[in-house]
């Protein structure tokens, strides 16, 4: 056992999961997730609400037991060694998991004491963290009076009272304004620099793009794509071409031309004048638009956008991320 553990640790995996499944009633919230996360990296879970991101994190953080499959956290068996795992991980939940009735400093002192610090050490550590996270002035205010960004920061501060080896961040920036979001990103980067492995979930491709070394796209409890952000983008093409026609009557001709020139299927919106296509090679776009002009099909507007999360989903699942809840019901 010791040898095996040692071997696992030298493999350098922070997380090694195989076939994780969690079923709630009829719903397979997580449906066979395989995962390896190298130590010292940031791993991003990308997916819409209800995709199974949070449930996966809760399993890996020992909060719920998998119905089948297992995982090793730094070589520790998730099912048998949860105590050893707990001493190396930390979780920042989707909503500020701190006592809102208490002040910022009281919260941090409480967590510090629960980590094993004496009262004196706990106070010192709490002050250190408040200063580092720019919350000194709010130290004696109840957390319920904090802004969204401040809550997030105190929440993360509580998670790193003792620097964890693996930090789970469940949608760390959802609902934050851009400035607070950047602050949280800076914190995450600093943590990684200090040697912490981070597993974060997000609904936002840009966030995954900014932070994560590798990204897993989760859909209906399964990982449907995995790789670096550039690999993922490559898999969904270099961008999306949106063309808005002036006359709906020319729709069919326009589609035929675009499909021929771009070599990919063209989607039509319900208004019958907005066409969109996933472009593999952006150099074809100019040619396609030129062809439309030669055929005298009038264009109201066009744009070439980078792939969005929505587009990743459209391509990988054939459905839009926004339509997810309906789709899941349909499949059950």
């Amino acid at each position: 056992m010791d040898n095996e553990q040692l071997k696992r640790q030298t493999n350098g995996w922070a997380v090694e999961a195989k076939g994780l499944v969690k079923v709630y009633g009829k719903e397979r919230a997580v449906d066979g997730v395989d995962l390896v996360i190298p130590q010292g990296t940031v791993y991003g879970f990308l997916g819409p609400n209800g995709a199974g991101k949070t449930t996966t994190i809760r399993m890996l953080a020992t909060l719920v037991q998998p119905d089948s499959g297992n995982a090793y956290i730094f070589g520790h068996d998730l099912k048998k060694e949860s105590a050893a795992i707990k001493s190396r991980i930390s979780l920042t939940g989707q909503y500020a998991s701190i006592d809102e009735d208490l002040t910022g400093i009281e919260n941090l002192v409480l967590i510090s004491k629960l980590m094993g610090y004496t009262s004196k050490q706990a106070k010192k550590r709490a002050m250190e963290l408040l200063a580092a996270f720019g919350l000194e002035n709010a130290a004696k205010r109840q957390v319920k009076n904090y802004s969204g960004g401040m809550r997030r920061r105190i929440d993360i501060a509580a998670s790193i009272v003792v620097t964890p080896d693996l930090l789970f961040l469940d949608e760390p920036t959802t609902g934050l304004d851009p400035r607070s979001r950047n602050q949280v990103w800076d914190i995450i980067r600093a943590l990684v620099k200090a040697g912490t492995t981070v597993l974060l979930t997000t609904q936002n491709l840009e966030e995954a793009d900014q932070l994560a070394d590798r990204i897993a796209v989760i859909h209906q409890g399964k990982i449907i794509a995995e790789g670096t952000s550039s690999e993922l983008k490559a898999s969904v093409g270099s961008g999306i071409l949106n063309v808005q026609l002036l006359h709906a009557a020319e729709e069919k001709r326009a589609i035929a031309i675009l499909e021929k020139k771009l070599g990919v299927p063209v989607h039509v919106a319900s208004d019958a004048i907005s066409l969109s296509a996933q472009v593999q090679d952006s150099s074809l776009v100019a040619e396609a638009l030129g062809e439309l002009a030669r055929e005298q099909i009038a264009i109201n507007d066009f744009s070439l956008g980078r792939p969005s999360l929505d587009r990743v989903f459209l391509t990988l699942t054939g459905q839009s991320a926004d339509e997810q809840p309906n789709v899941e019901e349909g499949n059950l």
Partner: peptide, 30 residues
Amino acid sequence: SIRLEHDNSTQEEDVHPLNAIASGRRPDPP
């Protein structure tokens, strides 16, 4: 691939978490 463009816009009250992130030795559990 870390991008730091937004760093230009940060102001003086911004966070400097690096100093306090490392907690030192982990205390024994209570």
